[in-house]
Design a protein around this nucleic acid. Structure first.
Lengths: 141, 141
DNA sequence: CCTACATCCTCTAGTGACTAGAGGATCAAG
DNA sequence: CTTGATCCTCTAGTCACTAGAGGATGTAGG
């Protein structure tokens, strides 16, 4: 039972323009249309959209998702590549966590040292003005 | 001793186009030019660029940096707002860390359960296809 | 039938923080 | 002079969406 795009959006939690966007970038094949040119999404399309949404929520990039979708279409192929994509992504997440923890440390110290007085005595402004006051080399995020 | 943009870039670690970008969006006043229209950056401009870079590295958004720079220009003003910006930013960093940790957990489990066989048996592909297999409600990042 | 509202369509352009490159001008060294 | 580096402005691209204009279709109620 194929549904129009609004209902596909309701069922998948993906916004209407975003569904069109995914079609535009090729993550999704152009679905069949009605006589009045409205898109109709069947079960297979809904499942594919759910896959995409789930992967996006896990932070996979669109290109990775494209590859994962291609793999899902070849059930007898090796899953070595899927494993590789997921591990690479996990490593990236670990890097981001480490960078954020370092920033958290700097900001916390900056805030704790703030005298809550005037700008000329403010550790926040002072520390931003002079990177040498940071205790550790913080990464760029 | 004012220097052209390439040397300002070397001294601050900010790329040439990015310096021009900051000027375009008003984070930086247009510096004086030579007779042949080349920008010249003095000590004050270099200091301002370093402030910007440092704040960007700490993840502050451009608008926040704009405000922090305005504060730095008023040494007798209260630093209450700087404190507020930094605290808000710290809270956001904590949210991102929590979200990334949750994702890390999901991905780790997914990878650990991967049988390293074929796609049709692959937990990574399987889990992406079915959000119900996730143990927790992971946030969208 | 008409009207009003909801939903759909394509297309263009914007978001944030850059980044790339085209086409041309200037500068410095050999 | 030539060559290569550096600079200029301008346009457009990156990533993953998102907003909105202008128009068409579908549905419910009067």
């Amino acid at each position: 039972m194929a549904v129009p795009i609004g209902m596909a959006s309701d069922r998948t939690g993906i916004k209407v323009p975003t569904i069109r966007y995914y079609e535009q970038i090729g993550l999704l094949l152009s679905p069949p249309r009605t006589g009045s040119n409205r898109r109709l999404y069947g079960d297979a399309e809904i499942r594919r959209l759910n896959f995409i949404r789930h992967a996006r929520e896990l932070g996979f990039e669109v290109e990775d998702i494209r590859e994962l979708l291609a793999m899902a279409a070849e059930p007898q192929a090796s899953c070595h590549k899927a494993d590789s994509i997921a591990r690479s992504h996990l490593a990236e997440i670990n890097r981001r966590i480490a960078a954020l923890e370092a920033l958290k440390g700097e900001l916390t110290r900056m805030i704790d040292e703030c005298g809550h007085g005037r700008i000329c005595e403010c550790r926040i402004i002072e520390a931003l003005a002079d990177h040498g006051l940071c205790e550790s080399e913080h990464a760029r995020i």
